[in-house]
Write a protein that binds this DNA or RNA. Structure first.
Lengths: 226, 226
DNA sequence: GTAATTTCGTGTATAGATTACACAAACCCA
DNA sequence: TGGGTTTGTGTAATCTATACACGAAATTAC
């Protein structure tokens, strides 16, 4: 009789143009790894899907709804949990600034955002999981337009540009970047503008999912390689 | 108390220049889906890793050793197995012609290779898993040189070219393809030749893993986009 | 209120990469 | 020895990616 448990873990990313990319972590209340920072997650219930389990845990543990969620990898080494055999299906998710900031304010000391460049020690093999998630996110934004899910629905183009710079960790030429992204035709320029500091006001843009799916169905290829 | 079972399934690909790309299937001995074709796989033992479980099952059920094995995706919908809740971690693997042909000969009617264009009805959600694996393999060969794992260690260049044509399902220009592949420097031309039919003998080539890792460590990027 | 500062917005020229394309060489077979 | 088959090779044209700088529109500082 098999006695393996199945859990889910979530690497949730948030973004702020000032602070960069962050990951949501919680502190563990119980042994093993009591008081360590860890990824939100937990055992899957007998009648719920894996994705439902992730969403439930995120709601319970951090009060968060993700706008994007995708399976990352399944970690199953027998020794990864010192007590039981636990196979964990890891997911990664993205939240918009709204959710990112709300959870950042709840001064509960058991939920917090950590910049991906300044991660604390993590429980279990969670460091490994986060690293793999970061790699995947970096790779993914290069060929699928998921970066938008980390921004407000309407955003100035410079936010997107900065996001790519932060994630890819290098300079991105403003003109070439905009030329490329706009050439795909799934970003709409709105008649509105905003101004968040000194400088010329920025026009707002918005991702058009419908147009994106149309293009995708025509077999379009989105090398966003910058 | 959780009562979810953990299994593994394997989508093993084999290749032959004459027959194209095939998948290894077995017939189920028991209900549910008795006598249906299905992916090799089974429950993970309490003390074995996921990858070890895949390799064990492939050995037991088909007598095969894969030369390449990678996790594909984890399937966990509650209704995917009509009896129990089973979460299945799917892998995909590649075998060389040697293994492909040996298993093709064992006339056991419970193990067989099926061309990916002529698949039979499959048990459970295995059709879905195979489709995802094919997509992944197609994508993967475009940016990592794993195609070699489906060929003999020494192979004529035309074999590689044909493999790409079959997998990508379109023509590939011989000169441009060779130019591109050779430019990466991880393929060596050997002083030997072979001749498998009429026509000019073909020089043999061989993948140099060491050189590949060296290049990879220097941050090299292998867009094999053809 | 004028000058300095900040951020947004835009186009062209060059280099690099991809694609299209055809014929000779080396073997087998009849 | 001539016809059939497969391998092997280079160049020109097109497309894509990159490099690069200055004016416009607002705020801030004096």
């Amino acid at each position: 009789m098999q006695s393996i448990k199945v859990s889910v873990d979530a690497v949730v990313f948030g973004y702020d143009p000032e602070e960069g990319v962050s990951v949501l972590l919680i502190t563990r209340k119980y042994e093993p790894f009591q008081k360590f920072w860890a990824l939100p997650g937990g055992l899957v219930k007998d009648e719920e899907s894996l994705e439902a389990a992730v969403k439930r845990e995120l709601k319970e543990e951090a009060g968060i709804d993700v706008t994007y969620l995708e399976q990352l990898y399944t970690f199953g080494k027998p020794e990864r949990d010192p007590r039981n055999r636990v196979v964990s299906v890891a997911y990664y998710g993205l939240v918009r600034p709204k959710d990112y900031h709300i959870s950042a304010q709840t001064d509960a000391d058991d939920v917090a955002w950590f910049n991906i460049k300044k991660l604390p020690r993590l429980a279990f093999d969670h460091k490994n999981i986060v690293e793999i998630a970061i790699k995947r996110l970096r790779g993914k934004i290069a060929y699928e337009p998921i970066g938008f899910e980390l921004l407000d629905k309407k955003f100035p183009f410079s936010d997107l540009e900065k996001l790519y710079q932060v994630l890819l960790d290098r300079d991105v030429d403003r003109r070439n970047f905009k030329k490329k992204i706009m050439s795909y035709g799934f970003l709409e320029e709105l008649p509105e503008s905003i101004q968040r500091s000194a400088g010329r006001p920025a026009k707002l843009f918005q991702f058009n999912k419908k147009k994106y799916f149309e293009l995708q169905e025509r077999g379009y290829n989105f090398d966003l390689f910058i």
